[in-house]
Amino acid sequence: MTSATILPQTTSPAAMIRTLGLIAALCGFIIVAAYQGTYDAVQENKRIAVERAVFKVIPTARSIVEYFATPAGSVTKVGAGDTAPVGSIKFYAAYDASDRLAGIAAEGVAKGYSDNVRILFAYDPASASISGFGLVAMRETPGIGDKILVDKDFLANFPLEAKLTDDLKKLAQAIVTVKHGSKTHSWEIDAITGATITSRAVGRAINDSAQLLLPRIVPNLTQLKEKS
């Protein structure tokens, strides 16, 4: 008998689809409610995190304005909900208590020992130098790679010379990390012994970002001078 071989079906396909649909709708509702409910707090947290990071690398800063440096060489203010134009780089113009430009902060990234080292560096337009850097994220070995933040000799590398060529197209001297004790120029970074790879990552991150960003910012410094 053929009917004996057919397995008994306890749930109809319609019931299965109905249940899955109902649960998906319920879960969708919960997710959207959570997203909407936390949106303002998350955005505020992100803003505070950026502000704190910039204030740390530019101590005289009291407020910041986000800008995009476009490939065409112009700088445009970032409005709420703006998406980055293709090829543009985000940077932060930091202003002091009297709303004068205190410095420029931008992110740089390079491969370190275990993962990418993401840093935020500060550019001082008055002296055309990189005045310091702070950490955004890294997964370097604790006790070794994280020396870049505390090692006095390493921090003494800053300010780093970051002058542009006369045609303002690139850095006059590329920023490079050199072996510990062999620094002879103000654009060189003296590496930490034992943390050479992370030290090099810092140098590369600053150089790669500065080479792209500074030729777009420096010609527009008058636009950035006063907080608008």
Partner: peptide
């Protein structure tokens, strides 16, 4: 929840609360 689709259902429910905790 029909037993035939229970694992899919549990995963959707778990993923929902993970998204909530993420936010």
């Amino acid at each position: 929840i029909p037993k035939e689709v229970r694992i899919a259902t549990y995963i959707v429910i778990i993923a929902t609360f993970v998204t909530v905790v993420d936010y």
